[in-house]
Amino acid sequence: MAVLLLADRSGNIVSQPTRSAVAAASQIDKDVHVLVLGGAEAAQAAAKLPGVTKVIQADGPAYEHGLAEPAAALLVALAPNYSHLLAPGSAMGKNIMPRVAALLDVQVITDIAGVESPDTFRRFIYAGNALATVKTSDGKKVLTVRAASFDPVPAEGGTAAVENAPAAEDPGVSAFVGAEIAQSERPELTAARVVISGGRALGSAENFAILDKVADKLGAAVGASRAAVDAGYAPNDHQVGQTGKIVAPELYIAVGISGAIQHLAGMKDSKVIVAINKDEDAPIFQVADYGLVGDLFTIIPELEKELG
């Protein structure tokens, strides 16, 4: 039986977490169908993903903003044809898939980091301190995928057909009011090749902006620790960690971040980690490939200059 993947959308581009989820889905079954909520352009983009055999496009006002209640109802309507229902572990996937699972009387398995077999998966627990292998006895499997654990499939190469989704009922209990989505020239945190993150040590929103210049030189996304976000130095969606975003870039630079376990949970899969901290005993150095001990307020301007 085929597997159904709910695509996440950032604008009209099928997001990188979705492409990682396609990679995970392909490890479960070779027949991967993708459900796209709204957006003919996004459906066309999904049809080009290698490994995708069919795209199902659901148009209509109820789906436009990815509201959980109508989206879950639609997935349940499609469920009889599939052995597995998956989504990337983005805010959208995490919101919708547990609802789908409960409607199907299934225990959802969130944030899978590995596929052992069609019914056995690996996932992190306790802020990444332990890795569990779990086997489900449910007939249908409902999953979300930890994008950082799967290399994304390329954006091009496939030629799947696009068809329209069947009509499903909108429970009509929720309505979209509005969104404040930051527009940035920089790459998206979970898709960036380089991430530079700042912590409490930055001290203010103005100071935090010194990271921007380095980010621009490296083509990096900017992240933050929870302490920096709580203090208002950086927006909420910049938080990296157990309860924020999970990133695994080629290069992660932690600036004035102590390295609490909750922060490490979101970045320790990065290929190369650089830590800049004035405390030589800061725990962040235990996971850093390159550590530089010193005051960030002298180091960051120097780094900017050195990068030319």
């Binding site: 969104a179 404040e180 989505i181």
Partner: peptide, 8 residues
């Protein structure tokens, strides 16, 4: 949400 805030 991922890119910022959403109100429902």
């Amino acid at each position: 949400v991922d890119g910022g805030l959403e109100t429902v």
